[in-house]
Computed example of a mutant assay.
Amino acid sequence: METDLTLRDLLNRADEDEPFQIKLGLQTAELDSEKLEYIEQAVEWTISEMVMHRKHKQGLSEDQRTVEIVSQLRALGLKASHDEEIGGHADIAIRLKGGFLWIAEAKNWRGCAWIFKGFRQLLTRYATGLPSQDNGAVLIYFEDENAKNLMDKWKVALLKQTAIATKIIQNFRIGFRSKHTHKGAGIDFNVRHFAVPLYWNPEDK
């Protein structure tokens, strides 16, 4: 009896099991672009899980929320860590084969100036500028309403900053991707800006 299964067979069997699909994809990803795709898919999935249970996520600190996301990422098969020493204490670091390193800074929304502080940490403290280490992210936790509007405000504020040159290279329904020159290495460093909308104010009483 034929028992050999291809990756395509396994993916087809995974059907709607997104965590399983992510695990399978990470096992076979070779190109940096493939690794990045599955990392971002994993982050999106963990954000979705947190937002679905936002009733129970109110009033938490940045670290409490970020540790939960890291735990979920590890459950998806990623070598993820919190507070790893990489030029400072990086909120989220993910390492994959081939020297691949992805770093994210996570902040509770307290206005654009607070987010920019974390963004500068990511770009000027944690990012190495080495090969396969030219992508990262900023995660913003919103308890305020209308996360899209607040993310748009953050994008406008980021573009106005002159200390770090910024180019928007991709927009999403909520969030965007920006490109910057890494001052140490002189290479482009790409940042995905994720919104985590945790606003909770039921009006059915």
Rank of each mutant, 00 (worst) to 15 (best):
E37I: 06
I47A: 05
K205G: 05
A113P: 00
S33V: 12
A93Y: 04
G186F: 03
N12I: 14
G59L: 11
H82W: 08
G88W: 01
Q133S: 08
A90H: 08
A80W: 09
A104H: 11
K79P: 00
Y38F: 10
D152G: 01
K57E: 11
I169N: 03
I47M: 06
I174Y: 00
G25R: 05
L24W: 04
K35P: 01
A165D: 11
K179V: 08
F172H: 15
F20D: 01
E44R: 15
R192D: 02
Q58A: 01
I115D: 02
A163H: 14
R74C: 05
W154P: 05
D9C: 00
E16D: 13
I140V: 15
F20L: 15
L5T: 06
L60S: 01
T6C: 08
K183E: 13
G175H: 03
H53V: 13
Q21K: 14
N201S: 12
Q121I: 06
P202K: 07
L76Q: 10
G59T: 07
S132Q: 12
C112M: 08
L7F: 07
N146I: 04
G136T: 08
D152C: 04
T181D: 05
D32Y: 13
I115Y: 06
S178V: 01
G184T: 15
Q58N: 05
M50T: 14
F172W: 11
W154T: 01
L26A: 04
F119R: 02
I169T: 15
V43Q: 05
D188L: 04
A80L: 07
E145T: 15
M50S: 08
P19H: 12
A75K: 13
L11I: 12
P19K: 13
R110K: 15
A195S: 14
D63P: 01
R125F: 11
P19R: 13
E49Y: 09
L24D: 02
L159G: 10
D63S: 07
R13T: 07
N146L: 07
V51T: 08
A163F: 14
I92L: 02
L198M: 10
R8F: 13
T6F: 09
I86N: 02
E203W: 12
W200Q: 10
R8T: 11
A157M: 09
Q21P: 00
S132E: 10
I168Q: 08
A147C: 06
E145R: 15
A29L: 05
G136H: 12
Y199M: 11
R13W: 05
T66S: 05
R54E: 04
L123M: 13
T162H: 12
P131F: 11
I92G: 00
W200T: 12
I39R: 07
S178R: 10
K155D: 04
K23S: 09
G25V: 01
F20R: 13
N146H: 12
G129C: 03
A42C: 03
A80M: 07
A42Y: 03
A147G: 02
Q58H: 03
N135V: 06
Q72K: 06
G111N: 11
E145A: 14
D4L: 15
K160L: 14
A106E: 01
D9E: 03
T3K: 14
L101E: 02
L150A: 00
I140H: 08
S81C: 04
